[in-house]
Amino acid sequence: MTVMNPTRLFRKKDPYQNHISRTRGEKIGGVIICIFLFALSLIMIYPFWHVLMYSISEPERALGGGLFFYPRGISFFSYSLVLRNAQIWIAYKNTILKTLFGTLISVVLSAMTAYPLSVKRLRGRNFFSMMIFFTMLFGGGTIPTYLLVKSLSLIDTFWALILPGAVSAYNMFILRNYMQSLPSELEESARIDGAMAFTILFRIILPLAAPSLAAIAMFYGVSNWNSYMDCLLYTNSTSLQTLQLYLRQVLLQTSSANAAMTVTGETSEYVSDTQVQMVIVAVSVIPILIVYPYLQRFYTKGITVGAVKG
């Protein structure tokens, strides 16, 4: 006769329910937690909802203010005004290009740095790792970096939006740690078969490191989309303006009828400043909302696969 494992027995009954019946206090506690978390979720979502509902309401009715649980009438007039403006398309184009090329360059550079550092026999591996790790602890600062970018003649070029922040030491280490956890026999046997380092990286290691590769691609992508310091510091011309800075420019003009003027080039009685601002906020956040389900999945994976150890 086999000895029964008591925990096994209880688990069979119901995997989610505690096997000792919950006390009344615990049940009430559970309900309170659920209600609290629901309220919290509402607080997290409402600002997004507010902006979206405000932006599609009829302009005069939106001026009433208050909470917007549903749009007050539907009008896409402000959207058509905003989207008719050339500058927003320039800003959109720059942000998309920055996100695509910036992320591509960042991921390739990070992978090419991470792989050699994950090969345990490589001489100087610890030295190079420490050298990169140190940049996470200490840096030259804003002004020296600005002067460097200036002396490289990158000011007011598209490269200034991509190169200064191309590799994040943190992301590189996430990737390296993941590659280190792959069995080293893979690399060794491929080498014996005569595969070159680049072939091994792109054909064997990267496909296996896909989860962490996707995660850092997301990290880079989101930070490229949202960052504005590089654009603020290193570019002056409006042809290189990114979406975030365009948003800033429009949001800061709250004093008079400026926002609508800036965007549409005309003051229209049918449109309010606030609504134009809300439309631009909506326009810059909608792409993020669309890809958010993927972002969340890969982010969660990425954060849990790699803890940084120097």
């Binding site: 997004f48 989309w225 504005y228 948003l247 800033r248 949001l251 906020v281």
Partner: peptide
């Protein structure tokens, strides 16, 4: 989302 978007929401 970026802090400018959050600023836009706070403003609203």
């Amino acid at each position: 989302i970026s802090w400018f978007v959050i600023y836009g929401m706070l403003y609203a």
